[in-house]
Design a protein around this nucleic acid. Structure first.
Lengths: 349, 349
DNA sequence: CACTCGGATTGAAACGTGTCAATAACTTTC
DNA sequence: GAAAGTTATTGACACGTTTCAATCCGAGTG
């Protein structure tokens, strides 16, 4: 509603609103932050002035004064991975109920990018952060907490309550479930196709698989072969096909358990190219139960993680840490669930 | 390196650094922002003090004083859609070169969420924003510009240079390419499976398809049937299968052109359930060429958009607008490219 | 040697908000 | 109707930074 399109930049502040409404700046501030403390009639006057002047609050000013900003960071390992975006939705939804703005940051699985992003959060005096750490080194997070920014670690089980809150999924149980399923179908030569073992989640899933073998009186060293790829994406899944099939039809695995759906889907594509049928020739199991797992043909059997709830409860933990003055760090565990689809079948031979 | 773990919160500011280095606060500020203006020896002194005190800049203070913050917003329609996350990568990479921090916001295709997020950017005095608008109503963006936050519209062709910069892909050309491909394969009954026609991109793709018909001397009204779904996701693609197959084998379409890969993948799943084979019984074409298009079987023929470059050039435009004082709004066009895979084949009958 | 010039540094004044002790206005009580 | 109590409002200050005119210093010049 400005008169001239190129009017000089007027900078409407709390003081101008106050003048316009005939009250003091302090009252305007109260209307904005603790409306219950101000009488209804003056509140309406102030609100009218705000609307008329098209006042928009300057969050730099407020967070400078109060020492903390009203936004929280969400640092994910890979914005491209559907697993993380689903988690992000959970975080966002919960943050919205607390009136917190979420800034999404991407570490792309690189330590220096993680460090840069954490520093950014410190500079912005972010209220808190939900972080999926790239590796076991949590020293940067400890630093962040010392700067006054609280955090919750996501999907990393080995964070002790001494250091901070965490919410994670039981990766051992996931590996165990996948292993039991495959062994139950009669498979005795299983390949574990994975990313770097430096990733804790991957190690646990592997352990779970091996435990399933032991349960069934199979020697894990005999039954399980490991193929380690540098990254957990579809491209590396496809490239792994040679290694998976090495040894010819007699020694090739009857089933492949992939540490990740992307790997599994890539592998399935590679197998298709080779003319190997899934599940007739080889069963495939993925991990994460990404939406797309249901869209390929055959549907991908996968270990489902409660992605949305994961994000939501991480944010809840963070909010409680922000509000509760004598908060003790907590650890929340989720249990994964196997979703069986067409990519796994009973052993044929 | 603090002595006691629960030391009282010291708030190391620019002034304390100055005192420690034996210079004035102004000099410290210069070291941080225009290092070339300060002599090498004093600069080193200041840097030493910064390191020793573990000083971390308070961005609230600086953006309060300077009137603008050093971060830009990226407002996407759907964080869950791989298309947008790929765009986000391009934006991020380019922003990093300019030292800008990107905050990723999600409008979830809802107008009120878009509005809320734009308001947030105004409150934070963001330097700029890359925005994918939810609909044709750009008034909130005009408002944002009046608040001093520059923006670039992404993937919306009808933004005039009067209003702002934009970068988009020629959706008409995409529809045309898909149509030519299908008609070239001999298909004469084509269904256009789409989201709401309120979305401009969708209308253009439809126009392109019809033009392809006209080129081939087919009456578009005869050849093209439209099925409109409320959302562009896999779920609605799958649900559309009844409508697609309506009319029985004789009247059913020979090919389906989907406005979106998610729709296409959902549809393919639904067709599989019904025992309809792709491409033998029906050819399917998608749009966006999402990574997963290559992972399903058969591979999904799709119209590829230069996702990464789209994000990158939007950010470039924004940066030039921020730096160049007498900037004129620009419009950048990209041309999509058809990627042929296994989901399309010549007409059988 | 006096003078000028240019680069390096300083110091104080904002930027817009939240806080809090102090005051004002209003209500209740006896 | 005055005192005591309660609720609303005020006003000045501080948060940490950037900016800019003013000052300082040392080197070059006539």
């Amino acid at each position: 509603m400005s008169t001239s399109p190129r009017a000089t930049r007027r900078t409407v502040g709390i003081t101008e609103v106050a003048r316009h409404a005939g009250v003091s700046p302090g009252t305007v501030s109260n209307v904005l932050n603790r409306p219950e403390r101000v009488a209804a009639t003056t509140r309406r006057k102030v609100e009218a002035a705000i609307a008329e002047l098209d006042y928009v609050r300057n969050s730099s000013g407020s967070s400078l004064r109060s020492g903390r900003s009203g936004s929280v960071g969400l640092l994910v390992l890979d914005v491209t991975n559907p697993f993380f975006t689903e988690v992000a939705r959970g975080v966002e939804e919960e943050a919205a109920t607390a009136g917190l703005a979420v800034v999404l940051l991407n570490s792309a699985e690189q330590q220096d990018r993680q460090r840069r992003n954490l520093r950014l959060l410190a500079e912005q005096r972010a209220a808190g952060a939900v972080v999926m750490p790239v590796d076991d080194d949590l020293s940067d997070l400890v630093w962040l907490a010392r700067q006054g920014t609280a955090w919750v670690a996501l999907d990393r089980g080995d964070v002790s309550e001494e250091v901070g809150c965490s919410v994670s999924v039981d990766n051992h149980a996931g590996g165990l479930a996948a292993g039991r399923h495959l062994i139950g179908l009669g498979h005795e030569r299983i390949t574990f196709l994975t990313g770097p073992f430096a990733i804790e989640q991957v190690r646990r899933r592997h352990d779970g698989l091996r435990e399933a073998c032991a349960e069934a009186h199979l020697d894990p060293d005999q039954a399980v072969r490991v193929i380690e790829q540098p990254q957990l994406n579809a491209d590396h899944g496809e490239r792994a096909v040679d290694a998976v099939l090495a040894g010819g039809p007699r020694r090739r695995p009857q089933a492949v358990f992939c540490a990740n759906d992307q790997l599994a889907l890539g592998l399935m594509k590679g197998l298709g190219r080779r003319g190997i049928r899934v599940p007739e020739d080889i069963s495939v199991v993925g991990y994460d139960n990404v939406d797309f797992a249901d869209l390929v043909h055959p549907g991908l059997t996968s270990v489902a993680q409660p992605k949305f709830d994961l994000g939501r409860s991480a944010m809840r933990l963070l909010i409680s840490e922000l509000n509760d003055p004598d908060h003790r760090h907590e650890r929340t565990w989720f249990t994964p669930e196997l979703v069986v689809r067409g990519s796994t079948a009973a052993r044929r031979t």
